[in-house]
């Protein structure tokens, strides 16, 4: 009896020591939760969430200051992932915050006056140009955040939606033939 107790306590102390040591040794700098959240956010950096970018929003969620359903570009799936990560209930988007189809900005090169204002607005440096020269958007880097639209004094920037094409087409989820019609309707309702 006594020896059993002794053994248990020794094990407990040893494990405690290991835990304590690793807590010091492997301490993660920064806020790992915010990092994890940031990894889920789409990095569009559009500010629609009410924060000046994805990272601040991630910090706000990590600190419990913000809800998880504020990022439209992330879509419902983004909310689901956040809900999973944080162990909270899924929450649908509030009104007006619906995700839009993916788009990239496009500068009409004939109208652009080279004012550099859009260039300063772009959160991911996807616009190339110099003062008084025409500006161009690197489509592959543009996140579609629309932040460059308002500053343009000559309204030469438009958003072009990327439709489904042969490069981004995906195989559909196979239709499960055995679902009777009435349950399909009910489940999607």
């Amino acid at each position: 009896m006594l020896s059993a107790l002794l053994v248990m306590s020794i094990i407990a102390i040893a494990l405690g020591a290991v835990l304590g040591y690793s807590a010091i040794k492997f301490r993660v700098e920064g806020n790992p939760l915010a990092d994890k959240i940031d990894a889920i956010l789409p990095q569009t950096q559009c500010g629609q969430c009410g924060y000046p970018g994805c990272r601040p929003y991630a910090d706000a969620i990590a600190n419990g200051e913000a809800d998880i359903n504020l990022c439209p570009p992330g879509g419902e799936e983004g909310i689901k992932k956040l809900a999973d990560l944080l162990g909270v209930e899924f929450k649908p988007f509030g009104s007006g915050a619906e995700p839009k189809p993916k788009a990239v900005a496009f500068i009409d090169e004939n109208t652009c006056i080279g004012c550099t204002l859009c260039l300063q607005a772009c959160p991911v440096d996807a616009i190339v140009g110099a003062a008084k020269q025409m500006h161009t958007i690197i489509a592959s880097e543009c996140t579609g955040c629309e932040l460059c639209l308002p500053p343009c004094p000559v309204d030469c920037i438009s958003m072009e939606s990327i439709g489904e094409n042969l490069e981004n087409w995906k195989w559909r989820y196979p239709v499960y033939a055995l679902q009777p019609a009435n349950t399909v309707g009910r489940e999607s309702a």
Partner: peptide, 22 residues
Amino acid sequence: KIQAAIEHAKEQAAAIKPKNTE
């Protein structure tokens, strides 16, 4: 600059280094 630019949209400036190309 904006004022100037709108007026002289076709004006050119040579040897200006573009930005965001880093």
